[in-house]
Amino acid sequence: MPGLEENVRAVRARIDAAARDAGRDPASVALLAVSKTWPAADVAALAALGQRDFGENRAQELLTKAAEVGGLDVRWHFVGQLQRNKAAAVARLGAVVHTVDRESLARALDRAGEQAGRPVDVFVQVDLGGAAGELAARGGAVPADVPALADLVAASSGLRLRGLMAVAPRGEDPHPAFDRLAALAARVRSDHPEAVELSAGMSGDLEAAIAAGATVVRVGTAIFGDRPLPCDGDQISPAT
């Protein structure tokens, strides 16, 4: 608990400072604590400190952890690559899905939202690629396909479009990538004014993301510490 408390306080201080440097209200940036691979006890400890939003990147771990802390007032987010056959379970939980990057997944979540009786809040994930234009291999729709995918989400009764999400390319200055994301987000908002959120920034680049307009930063390592190496077959997304 003391380590977690110190870490989350330090991360929130970074968020506040970055927002002020960008001329923004610190309250306009939400902290999403990415608790993947960490025990439910850590989620409970952070919830006791006032942290409400938690992210997972594997459907089974999300469902198991949510059941273990079922009495707590927390909001779950899914930040990994979601398989269509897991969409219904994630929708029933009421999790926000940050990684809608293809039509087939959007339609599966749409059906799940209709069956659950409430729309699924989703972000369209953008592949920001790299300096030479190569795909980042972290999931995400190519930028040219994002407006049409956002149109599909916005027109789906079982979905609610929250905005865009992306991960900056590895090993590069994140500012140009986040600037491209901000420009694309502005284009999407021109057609869908409700899509006001931008999920971007992790432990190492949250300041650059906030400068570009991020409203949600996804932080794992800076709060929980370094994770153990994944076992074979684990699906670990670079979303912290």
Rank of each mutant, 00 (worst) to 15 (best):
D173P: 10
V120A: 00
G130D: 04
G139S: 01
E114H: 08
H192A: 11
Q83K: 09
T37V: 09
H192R: 09
L161C: 09
E6N: 12
A211M: 07
E103P: 02
A195E: 07
D53T: 13
A18D: 12
G113L: 03
V74F: 06
Q115P: 03
A137T: 13
S203E: 13
Q235H: 13
S199L: 07
T215H: 09
I210L: 10
A168F: 02
D234P: 05
F78P: 07
F54D: 14
P228N: 11
A89Q: 15
R52S: 07
E61F: 09
F54C: 12
P143W: 00
L49S: 09
V146W: 00
L93Y: 03
E68A: 15
A40S: 15
V126F: 01
A89K: 05
R160W: 00
I210E: 10
G70Y: 07
R111D: 07
E172G: 09
L149C: 01
L152I: 11
A177G: 11
V153E: 10
L152W: 04
P230R: 06
R58L: 12
A112H: 01
P2W: 04
P147T: 14
V219W: 02
V34F: 03
D179T: 14
A150E: 01
G213R: 05
P238K: 01
G3P: 13
R118C: 13
T240P: 14
F54H: 07
S157L: 03
W76Y: 14
A239L: 06
R102M: 04
Q81R: 14
E56N: 11
A30Y: 06
A150K: 05
G220K: 06
Q51G: 08
A214M: 13
G225E: 08
E103N: 02
D21T: 11
P147H: 05
A22I: 12
S156F: 04
A89N: 14
G139N: 06
E134N: 08
V188C: 12
L164D: 05
R189D: 12
G158P: 07
A131T: 15
S157E: 08
P238M: 05
P143R: 02
D53M: 13
S157P: 12
E194T: 15
P143Y: 02
A22T: 08
A166Y: 00
A45N: 12
A195K: 05
D234R: 04
A59E: 13
L198N: 08
